[in-house]
Computed example of a mutant assay.
Amino acid sequence: MGLKLYGFSHSTNTQRVVLVLNELKVPFEYISVDLSKGEHKNEDYMKIQPFGCVPCIDDDGFVLYESRAICHYIVTKYASQGTPLVPSELKANALYAQGLSLEVGSFDAAAAPLVYEKLFKPYQGKTPDEHSVKLFESNLLQCLDGYEKILSKQKYIGGNELTLADLYHLPYLTLLPQVGCNAVDERPSVSRWAKEILARPTWKSLMEDGVKGSA
């Protein structure tokens, strides 16, 4: 059967999983779940994803959801191929784990709702909440100030090796300029790091060609 990925092309979480699959050169079948048509709430889909969210994988009967959990599963199962994304040495792995926590607890916690307020809400015909926008902008600036200190001393957010912790940032690093946020470019070490990972061939291909399966 092989690995099936259920997702939506504009979903940042779907993009995160596709990126990791491509980095590790894992073949997969892509099954589109169109959120704009409500397909994620269909009875058949919710049998495999009880929250009605994307993405979700079915790996020969093993079903898993939540993008970061899926990525962890992929890099563990296919550790011997593609780009090494999880360091094994004790201290390097600890820095990697620290980077993972920073991404989800600080960066994503500010960037995701900021992009939602300024990009996705208007797309849905809703009005952004300006109080929330200011709060998320402030939180993001504080996060990036911390990142600047970290990245002035090490190459990547999880140490001196490229890891999942870096790749997880890519969807929102791409969207921030679209909502008028140039804070990344204003911090030299953060800018250097962001430009490097944004230039990865797998990410550029995903942005140019869209989400699709691989043979």
Rank of each mutant, 00 (worst) to 15 (best):
P113Q: 07
V20R: 00
E89A: 15
E23N: 12
F120W: 09
Y45S: 03
N42P: 00
T14C: 10
V18F: 03
E23Q: 11
S191C: 07
Q142V: 09
L19Q: 07
Y172P: 01
C143R: 01
S205K: 15
L35D: 00
L151E: 09
G61A: 09
K126L: 15
N139S: 13
K153G: 04
R200F: 10
Y45Q: 08
V115C: 15
N139R: 13
C53K: 09
E208C: 07
G180Q: 07
Q154E: 09
D34P: 05
V179S: 07
R187V: 12
N22W: 09
F28K: 02
A79S: 15
D209P: 05
L144S: 04
Q15Y: 01
D58H: 01
L90S: 08
T83N: 02
I31V: 15
Q81Y: 12
L119T: 04
F107Y: 14
L175M: 04
G210R: 10
E137F: 13
L3R: 00
P122K: 08
K118W: 06
K91M: 13
K155D: 10
N139K: 13
I31C: 08
V26S: 09
I57T: 02
K4Y: 08
S80I: 01
L5G: 02
P171G: 09
P113H: 06
C53H: 09
K204S: 14
S32G: 00
K25W: 13
L3P: 00
L119P: 03
T202C: 10
V115H: 01
I57A: 02
P113A: 07
M207C: 14
F51E: 05
Y96V: 08
A69D: 04
R192M: 12
Y6S: 00
P84N: 06
L176N: 03
N182H: 14
I150C: 02
F51W: 06
T163D: 12
S11E: 00
V18E: 01
A109Y: 10
A199C: 08
D129F: 14
E89I: 15
D129S: 14
R200A: 11
Q178Y: 07
P113G: 05
Q98F: 10
L135K: 11
L21R: 07
R200T: 09
D108C: 08
G52N: 01
E29C: 04
L164T: 06
Y168F: 15
S32W: 00
K149I: 12
T83S: 06
L198S: 07
S205W: 12
V115I: 15
E137N: 05
M1D: 04
L151A: 02
T12S: 14
L175P: 08
V115E: 01
V190G: 01
P201A: 13
G125L: 10
E43G: 00
G210N: 06
P122R: 03
